[in-house]
Amino acid sequence: MIALEFPFTEEKVRALKVGDEVALSGRVFTGRDAVHKYLHEGGKLPEGVSFQDGIIYHCGPVVLKDENGEWKVTAAGPTTSIREEPYQWQIIRDFGVRGVIGKGGMGPKTLEACREHGCVYLHGIGGAAQVLAECVTRVINVHMLEEFGSPEAIWELEVKDFPVVVTMDSHGNSLHADVFKSSSEALAARV
């Protein structure tokens, strides 16, 4: 397990390779379909929010308010990332994103943006909402909750030892592309 801690600099991110297991600590921003489409169409990030050297987490958490009125994340696994493939490269380029957490991997445009701008794709364990929610130590803030609704809002979360696997690195390697190729060949031999 490699510890990756805030701030997520280009140097730290460039050192990561496909297959590395990483324990992530620091601040991450959730962002999924609505946020990506909004930014792609020229939308502005809310005042005081910056993705520079930051991490976007493809996640729509279950968040409840406790009796003291504090937000509490009760389930927070990754959502399928490929839906953001049309937008992700641009958001990596324009907003200085260093890491994207999600599941299922992404395509060639994102892989190229990771290589060019110094970013990695970090695969969370899909469905493991409870294990991952335990790693969310605090809800720092929430943005665009009214516009997008709870699952689609930008939740600013503090995480500790959040487990992910590097499946796309900043050197042009993608575990997803490799497994897709080998499994397609294995299938061709069996039909």
């Binding site: 297991e21 729509g60 009760t74 389930a75 364990i125 493991a128 409870q130 335990e134």
Partner: peptide
């Protein structure tokens, strides 16, 4: 590693009576 996390998640969800996966 992935299956170990999955197994732990199943136990934790049951114990806490909370969603196994956030996408219900």
């Amino acid at each position: 590693s992935a299956l170990k996390i999955i197994e732990r998640n199943i136990e934790l969800a049951k114990q806490k009576s909370q969603p196994i996966c956030q996408d219900t």
